[in-house]
Design a protein around this nucleic acid. Structure first.
Lengths: 173, 173
DNA sequence: CTGGGCATGTAACTCGTTACATGATTAG
DNA sequence: CTAATCATGTAACGAGTTACATGCCCAG
């Protein structure tokens, strides 16, 4: 018998974004992608679905913008209260799916040439990640010290990954 | 019209594990958790489901162990071929869900005391992660140089995270 | 004024999680 | 010998992804 105020992490994070200011579903998606996209993935479809149920629960409210079927949502007072409650619950476990690392793990099945390609293109991607994080850092700093901290987290991790790439004895194995 | 040989990443990784040697669903789960659990999450239920469909497709075959309903699965030749194909496809994007970082991102909504608690317990967890990775490293080294590389990846990333924790000006904000 | 792309939303499907069922094993 | 726990599997549900529908806007 789930409490009606029960909310999943995706929905809760939507509340978080609306706490920053009113947004349409589309804006919400854009904003989420650039701000937390690297450590919190969600899709547009999910956002729309959660907005609907959050509205039913009275945690957000939408007003028509007059443009298409577009609606702009904002947090209600109960919504903000619910957000704060959620923030105070201990965070669940980290969940990662890193297809590159799994493939690397099984690379005994591959000829060395293929492994080299796999590694090279993954390294390339991580270089791009660092660049992108450094690009958003100023925006994050402007938004809040916490946003800035998460951006620096990303940079720190990505740099460690690049260092790992460079220290592994790829040419030997 | 999905090609019948189409297989999802979870199923493909199951093939990978069976490439190491025959295992029951249970073993498979244990092994996956300790070896790649931190960057490749999957649940027991999924494993059983994928085993069933992989068997239907002839990529694995199971024999009764005589113990309960337990069955031990092994890779067929087509299974190994399919595994190699999958390994050579470019890996999909990394997907992460880090509830700690999202909560931190929105921590402007929280009183500083609460933020401190959030951060402290997250740091604690990552210390445990480092310890666990270092514990499995010897086993990984024994298994394969690639397994070892992924373990070192974990250590490198976790240490970078700890350094980040220590450099952030938590007391100021 | 039209065709191609983009903004916006929904529906259908697949994947991942949680809850349950049940038979073995072990501690007391 | 019996209660508790663990090993093993399945089923039901909720979350995430992909595919699609439609209307707006801009380039030619």
């Amino acid at each position: 018998m789930a409490d009606d105020s029960d909310i999943n992490a995706t929905a809760a994070s939507v509340l978080g974004f609306l706490g920053i200011g009113p947004m349409t579903g589309w804006d919400l998606n854009d904003f989420a992608q650039i701000s937390v996209g690297n450590f919190w993935s969600m899709t547009r479809s999910q956002i729309y679905r959660e907005l609907r149920t959050l509205e039913e629960k009275g945690l957000v409210e939408g007003e028509d913008t007059g443009f298409r079927d577009q609606r702009r949502f904002s947090l209600t007072d109960t919504g903000r209260a619910r957000l704060r409650e959620w923030l105070r619950e201990p965070p669940g476990p980290e969940i990662n799916r890193n297809p590159f690392l799994v493939k690397l793990f099984f690379s005994g099945e591959l000829p060395p040439r293929e492994v080299a390609r796999l590694v090279a293109s993954a390294r390339q991607l991580h270089e791009e990640h660092v660049a992108r994080y450094e690009e958003v850092l100023p925006m994050a700093e402007e938004l809040s010290p916490f946003a800035a901290a998460t951006a620096r987290y990303g940079i720190a991790v990505e740099k460690a990954i690049l260092a790992w790439f460079d220290e592994e004895p790829w040419r030997r194995a």
